[in-house]
Amino acid sequence: MNDGTGSREPTSPGRRRFLISTALSGAAPMMGRIGPAEAAETGAPPAVTPGAMPTMAISLTVNGRTHRLDLDPRKTLLDGLREEIGLTGVKKGCDHGQCGACTVLIDGRRELSCLTLAAAAEGREVVTVEGLAAADGTLHPMQQAFIDHDALQCGYCTPGQILSAIGCVQEGHAETADDIREYMSGNICRCAAYPNIVAAVADARARMEG
């Protein structure tokens, strides 16, 4: 310590030990981190960045094609389809399973891709709106019915509406207009094109079953 005359008092042994232990404890985490190059030389495992998550290899079958990906195991099917495969017809709306814009078909049944982990879809058949048309460009009956009945306005919810409608028909829940309204209620249309959507689903059901 400075006594006011410019000279310093010698540090006491107890204070010296405290300062040394504090310096060592602060340096210990830094000394314990070993980078990849050092790890290769010493044989020690490289340090893992806090918060980092290792990836996992998965295989997704989407629209009849197999995609082999290395993904964060926490990644949703929605983000995997959009960011990794480039299928942006799957829309991110609420990201909480409340609007239906991200609906896809998995093994023929409609599911919300924002609530489904990509890894959970491995070994299953995923269909997005990009996979509905025939190879010659002929639209799926549900796609054509939405056009014929003008069952869209801004179009953002339309891919999810169409896939949910196909699932609704295949589940046997589109026999009446009331059934369609009930079993399509999870798909929100902010433009309120609901009457035309109901008409389109009823029309497409007849085409699909006929």
Rank of each mutant, 00 (worst) to 15 (best):
C154N: 06
A202K: 01
G86K: 05
C114T: 04
S12G: 15
V90T: 15
Q144T: 02
T76H: 09
S113V: 07
G4V: 05
A193D: 05
A44D: 08
P10Q: 13
A120R: 11
E9L: 15
E83N: 12
A118N: 02
G137Q: 05
G155P: 07
H96L: 15
E84N: 11
T66E: 15
S185G: 05
R15C: 14
G89A: 09
C157D: 08
G32P: 04
Y183T: 07
D3C: 10
T176H: 09
E83I: 10
V129E: 06
F146L: 10
R68M: 11
F18P: 03
Y194N: 02
L78W: 00
A52L: 03
T5M: 08
P46C: 11
T128M: 09
P36L: 06
T55V: 14
V90Q: 08
G186F: 07
S185C: 10
T42L: 07
G4L: 07
A40H: 07
L60W: 00
V104N: 01
T55C: 09
D203R: 09
L139Q: 08
G167D: 04
P10D: 14
T66G: 09
G89R: 03
R16H: 14
A44E: 11
R65A: 14
D72A: 02
E111G: 06
I58L: 15
L77T: 03
D107I: 08
E38D: 13
A193C: 12
G43K: 02
